[in-house]
Design a protein around this nucleic acid. Structure first.
Length: 141
DNA sequence: GCCAACGTTGGC
DNA sequence: GCCAACGTTGGC
């Protein structure tokens, strides 16, 4: 089981919109970056991820689960681009801001901190547990 | 709104 | 294969 982080600008695709899709989830389309795509290819059913709001809120707001493996992105005819489907699992009780993440030495190696432009990225288990703790979850899922 | 960082494209 | 030019992302 692996952990990931999905980044989205809330004006384009927000956590609220994601939650409205319910258990069926929605494809994480629109990724046009090889590194991000390769990360999605690595994902397995049941893998968990953070849902991060970029630009305006810059915080981790929710937890999602991979519910379909990588498949062609239906928003383009270009066969290079693939995406997984994800569904909302739960809210982060207290959203964890980028400022808090940057201020925490245990999270200094996160890709979110060091490569702010990668939109789909892996998260280490220790980083996953730490952000869950900061977000007010008693037990990391 | 600005700008730094990064990725992609295309000329040579 | 290199590198300059350009476009996009995202933090501030």
């Amino acid at each position: 089981m692996a952990y990931w982080l999905f980044k989205s600008e809330p004006s384009t695709w927000s956590w609220e919109m994601q939650k409205k899709k319910g258990d069926k989830g929605e494809q994480w389309d629109g990724v046009r970056n090889y590194q991000a795509r390769n990360n999605m290819r690595e994902m397995k059913l049941g893998d968990l991820g953070f849902f991060y709001h970029s630009v305006k809120e810059t915080s981790v707001v929710g937890i999602v689960e991979v519910c379909a493996l990588a498949h062609p992105d239906t928003t383009t005819d270009d066969p290079r681009w693939e995406c997984v489907d994800i569904r909302a699992v739960k809210d982060i009780p207290r959203p964890v801001t980028l400022a808090e993440i940057k201020a925490n030495p245990a999270l200094s190696e996160m890709i979110l901190v060091n490569n702010s432009r990668l939109s789909v990225q892996p998260v280490r288990p220790d980083e996953w547990a730490e952000i869950c703790r900061m977000g007010g979850l008693d037990k990391a899922p």
